[in-house]
Nucleic acid binder design. Structure first.
Lengths: 336, 336
DNA sequence: CTGAAAGCGCTTACAG
DNA sequence: CTGAAAGCGCTTACAG
């Protein structure tokens, strides 16, 4: 019996003693190999494990085997629904492979991000999934320790790490074309910070679609704002107060689109009547906004599948993959 | 030089050799103790560490020291803004103490939750923070391994674990009283699943406030629905289509409130004109909804502080604490 | 102030 | 099919 409050840590040696075998045998039955154990012996060991309440020490295991069946994920901000959705998809896919996913939220801080990566690497995760805040120290830390890395939603500037990115250019272009098909001509664009490659790619897609339609880009209708509800709200307020405001807008994230809707409501601008909106992210937030948002949805499951795949069988040199998007049509664009 | 692609793992022994000292000395300089090292020796070791690119192996460290400076957090669903906000607050507080927080998302699955808890415990987190989906196996697993646990947002049914809970009854009562002060009399209540204690507590608070005001509880105006946008949307649709719908509603979560706002907009019910709404959670989602939601906000920082405190100095028997809430007034209740 | 050595709890060749 | 032993990379009494 375990004395309550003062738990006794039972080890493999205790089990071995109780079963009258060596610790090697206990290890073999736990891991079902690498050597065969007689059925009777196996039974004795199993019973001894149950009786003693033995739980293998994962730390010791990791030390000798080098593997932990654990994946680490570092994201900039879990409160952002996009990252939460991504994390969820990765979690599901990881567990399908018998791996557990542990997450770290860097809170947009480069320092915390490094700490997180170091923690994961030092504790020997079998792979690291990295959605960085900008500095790419993480890749260096992980690869120099021999931990496989996959960079998500960003491309590594060099070819040190594998990556999976969303096709931002085409997603943004498709969204913008949809606005144009609705007859909108004064097209605005609300983006993330200009320093973020994702934002620049979405801008390029928007621009391309406008040009292809023979339209002209009005620089006053392009805003670079933080990827947040507040960012979208403030930028939205500015743009909607313009003498000639846009009649259609592509918004680079759902949080920003939600902020924009709030600004529009406050100013009495009808959506989609006076302003058609298409956003980007495809999370649950857009389904029940007022009005529900038409949005460019990444294929989260596809991204997760490729990521785990790249982690499990690393290529040399590292491979970079692109995942496509789908336009999810709801009512903010003017569709019925 | 490290050969690229085939990282050489440099160990303490390598550093010791390079510095011409024993591994004990290397350990002492890394940990700044427990024994003093001559400044000159220390310099030599530091230089050797830099030259070899040494990084301590956290696994080996954890095995011998038993500590990892790491806290584990298990939540039911990160996509829920409430848990994401909670996680963020805990992360901030943990890092203030030099601890890193790793999270696990159980995706509402009892199985995954157990796996997560086992992983954390097996890998020797210094403490476990647990927001359970229902089954309390986790507490058993952790305590029997000697890992301190703090249960959040739920009370452990027995006194095996410390806990920090929000004052749900009073939060709901304050919200409901606010609705009454706005002159609303046909008060509805949209709750989480009846099996969730938090939902029951918020119901009790609502009921108490209605009674105190001399009102009567109309059972048709009480809905128990999933804690999600969709849950709120569907329940909202049902309730607003009633022959005599509510003119004020307390909603037990922000996700549900967002769903309700969507339902109201769809049915052309003006908020707050025809329906005043007060919700619960105090996350960022409520700031920019249409209209912005009045909400009962937990003190996330307070909860985080108490949690880390309980983890760092466990009491016997475990202590249970209650954290108060604040009513954040915006416009969905009818305030200007 | 520093070195040689035991030991944390496992896994896995090496022998039998 | 099983046991005795080395070793994973550290920390920390034990000696000097």
């Amino acid at each position: 019996m375990t004395r309550p409050g003062r738990p006794v840590r039972v080890t493999q040696a205790d089990v071995a003693r109780a079963a009258g075998v060596s610790t090697a045998v206990v290890s073999y039955v736990i891991n079902e190999g690498p050597r065969p154990i007689a059925a009777a012996t196996r039974e004795r060991v199993l019973r001894a494990m149950a009786e003693t309440g033995y739980r293998p020490n994962g730390v010791a295991r990791a030390l000798v085997s080098g593997a932990t069946r654990t994946l680490g994920l570092v994201v900039p901000e879990l409160a952002n629904q996009f990252f939460a959705t991504l994390a969820h998809a990765l979690e599901t896919e990881a567990s399908r492979h018998g791996l557990v996913l542990v997450l770290g939220d860097s809170g947009q801080s480069v320092d915390r991000e490094s700490t997180l990566v170091e923690t994961f690497v030092d504790r020997r995760v079998d792979g690291l999934i990295y959605v960085g805040v900008g500095a790419h120290d993480a890749i260096e830390i992980a690869t120099s320790a021999g931990t496989p890395v996959v960079v998500l939603d960003r491309v590594a500037d060099d070819d040190r790490a594998a990556s999976v990115v969303i096709d931002n250019v085409q997603g943004a272009a498709v969204a913008t074309r949809h606005l144009i098909e609705h007859g909108r001509r004064a097209l605005g664009c609300l983006l993330g910070p200009e320093t973020v490659p994702t934002a620049r790619a979405r801008h390029a897609g928007w621009q391309q679609a406008v040009h292809d339609a023979g339209g002209r880009v009005d620089p006053r209708l392009v805003e670079w704002a933080p990827f947040s509800k507040e960012g979208g709200y403030r930028a939205g307020l500015r743009m909607l107060r313009l003498a000639s405001p846009p009649d259609g807008m592509f918004v680079a994230s759902e949080d920003q689109a939600l902020g924009l809707l709030c600004a529009a409501a406050e100013l009495g601008v009808a959506v989609p009547g006076s302003l058609a909106v298409v956003s980007f992210d495809g999370t649950d937030s857009s389904r029940f906004s007022v009005p529900p948002l038409t949005t460019v949805a990444p294929r989260f499951t596809d991204i997760a599948r490729r990521t785990i795949e790249l982690l499990r069988s690393p290529d040399v040199p590292p491979r970079s993959e692109t995942s496509t998007t789908d336009l999810v049509v709801r009512s903010s664009c003017g569709c019925p």
